[in-house]
Nucleic acid binder design. Structure first.
Lengths: 261, 261
DNA sequence: AGACTGTACCGTACATTGTACGGCTCAGGT
DNA sequence: ACCTGAGCCGTACAATGTACGGTACAGTCT
């Protein structure tokens, strides 16, 4: 029972989860009479989003790239929301060569989780728009399901409970996603402003000094640490350092659950 | 040197970081001739965003709530982007009673980090729209700076390097933010669809069975673990469990850096 | 062969967004 | 009394997702 409000315009389409699921698991390659397929639409959308982000992705630009009318897309895809769901499942299709690739990695569970983390990191940095799609709705697409299976296998049979397996994996993935997101934001800001991190800093330094005048001694620790970080990484954050540092700590924290079990 | 393209319409405003900084650190309470203040605008926007999210927040609705003309807001605030920056800094103003509250917590650095994590969690769940604002631009607002100071202090003097202090804190905060985000998404989906997690599951179960028919035995581990998780939490994810589980592992992983230093 | 039917395709229309632009209206200084 | 600058805001515009209704073609049935 959806809202009956006449809302036209820029609104998330009616969800209809059943239709979404069928679409997600469908074949995607049956062409209509002008050659249009779900597959082609999704691919075009991914390409566009890779260069301009989800915000800038519009049904009109997708249609244009396919030399089709805008409204033709709606024959194959219910709306933009479902399209992004499809894009999401799509890009995770190439994550692993096969479902046992993570489990095959050297270094046992630890090596496997490191492999998983880095592969996820790669996808996330190749397709930064992923951060903007609401992930839970697609949790049941075919590729996502396969991904879940592939990532759980190396944790199986180590003495962890099923719930612990899921929690440990989620912890690693959340970490990767969070740091990748910060990195993507940094890149986007640099691109949008046209300023490198250093240039940006140099540009605002005088203003900052003026504005913080007098209150600077309120922040002794922040000042010292911030300066140290900035000098060490030439930036306020270094995503790839954050990834490895955090991953190391997390795996160290997971180890006792396994070794003592 | 910004793009000269005539772009009107829905575009992020010209950034001008200096102006943003001055605004962030300004007084916010000097009224214009109709009583409008930056403070009032930001407060109204926060209230609206709390109930409907950032997406649904529009300059028109903010103005309406203040009984002002839409364009009047632009006298006080350069654009929507800067407004969200102000909102962001604003809600972090009430995080801690004072700059030493985290350091005062019992349980040493561990207790302090747990306190920090939970306070951040509280803010994030009270204002879920925070997840949608690009955070790095505001990293230098007064309240954010104070927050950084307050959160670093309990880590000072433990033998960590400055960079390690920052990395450890960032790890904890990234974790909190990631899990809070997942929780917020869950809540939003439930509200938008009007379906509880259980109802939603019951609704799609038959479709899922149909669609996965035959390929189900491809996912033995995922099936088993997913079912276990679902039965344990009555949901596909349990954000507050994810928070405490992850925080525990992370702090366990950080401990050796401190104890052996 | 010819008629019918369903589906792919798409042109137009509309509500909604952020904000550029230019005019109006006052408070305060001269 | 007049000027000036700043606060205020009405209108206009480009861009968005998509509802709606029409057109044209591929198959199927007589």
């Amino acid at each position: 029972m959806w809202k009956k409000v006449p809302l036209a315009g820029r609104k998330a389409a009616a969800p209809d989860p059943a239709r979404s699921l069928a679409l997600l698991w469908g074949s995607h390659s049956k062409p209509g009479r002008s050659g249009l397929t779900v597959r082609a639409i999704v691919d075009a959308a991914v390409e566009l989003a890779d260069v301009s982000g989800l915000e800038a992705l519009s049904m009109r630009t997708v249609a244009e790239r396919l030399k089709a009318g805008t409204m033709s897309l709606y024959t194959h895809v219910p709306g933009k929301g479902e399209l992004t769901d499809l894009m999401f499942d799509r890009v995770y299709g190439d994550l692993y060569a096969d479902v046992d690739e993570p489990a095959r990695q050297p270094g046992g569970w630890r090596g496997a989780l490191e492999f998983i983390a880095h592969r996820n990191w790669d996808v996330l940095t190749a397709h930064p728009w992923i951060h903007e799609v609401p992930t839970m709705r697609t949790a049941l697409g075919p590729n996502i399901t396969l991904k879940y299976e592939a990532e759980l296998r190396p944790l199986d049979g180590l003495g962890l409970t099923d719930v612990e397996m899921d929690s440990a994996l989620a912890l690693v993935l959340t970490h990767v996603q969070g740091t990748a997101r910060a990195g993507a934001e940094q890149v986007r800001l640099q691109r949008d402003s046209g300023l490198s991190d250093e240039e940006w800093w140099r540009q605002i330094a005088p203003t900052l000094a003026t504005v913080m005048a007098g209150s600077a001694q309120q922040f002794p620790t922040a000042g010292r640490v911030g300066t140290a970080v900035g000098e060490h990484f030439q930036s306020i954050i270094d995503p790839s350092h954050a990834l490895t540092f955090g991953l190391g700590r997390i795996l160290d924290g997971i180890a006792p659950l396994i070794d003592t079990a």
